[in-house]
Amino acid sequence: MNQVPLLSVHDLKTYFYLEQNRIAKAVDGVSFTVSPGETVAIVGESGSGKSITALSIMKLIEKPGKIVEGSIHLEEKVISSLSSKQMTKLRGNEIAMVFQEPMTALNPVYTVGNQITEMIRKHRKLDKKQAQIEAINLLKIVGISRAEDVVNDYPHQLSGGMRQRVMIAMAISCNPKLLIADEPTTALDVTIQAQILDLMVEMKERYHMALLLITHDLGIVSEYADRVVVMYGGQVVEEAPTKQLLRTTKHPYTKGLLESLPNLKEDVDRLGTIKGTVPPAYALPNGCRFYDRCPLAMEKCKEANPELYQVNTSHTVRCYLHEKEEIE
């Protein structure tokens, strides 16, 4: 990781100001980087703040949410201080996003072609005819047969997998540097999931993009990601290159996630579970945020939230168990 990062997020805090003066700290001091061409996965349960992190990078946080602190850089650009007008030039053009629900992520009243071309015309300044040709071309690239017909179809005429392909076609249309995929396969059939992920990786290589993959599925992570950022309670709890994370898992939460995956090598009667749920972002404990659910919790964990300890050059973990392993 000696390269200059493509994306660097530093100490990002995105809070939601709820009724009765409650503050939901959805993202609470998250830092990570993505290098050019790299695939980084953000992993965590629902409510761990991974989607909000992604939306914060796009500056698509709606009221009552707000980015309160931190900086986001895309190469030399400081995203966190761009105006909303400058952001519209960046979104879709330099950072593109694919969402979880292909069924609702496309506008039902416009044709697929219309929704792709409006983006091409905005960022690439092509005329209507060229944009239409380009849209058909893109649909072919993402593996849609009869692209000439599909371009005139409405979203409701397509299957979930097809719609996700359309979303990907849209995302790559302006050759972005970074593609953020927010649980891109969660809503799809298992048989389609691998196809879509393979397609994204293929596109990533073809267009030399970096991929920020947001998922709760560690199975996907092990196969596709170069590096993993594990999030819990709005914070990064462990970060390491994928292989290292899987082999020398440090954080009890990451271990819990791994134990909950089916494994072909070992024969177990029951998959592991992590008891309890993620604490609500407006009522986070003072101590370690995983304290209530941690099988290895100590007295110390209740009192103060541990720092992120650098246990080797590329592995960090937020757990007192590994405090002593910290290197300088």
């Binding site: 796009m58 519209t88 879709g92 593109a96 409006e118 983006m119 849209m170």
Partner: peptide, 9 residues
């Protein structure tokens, strides 16, 4: 959200 993410004004 998609439209905004595409960079539409």
């Amino acid at each position: 959200r998609t439209a905004k993410a595409k960079g539409m004004s």
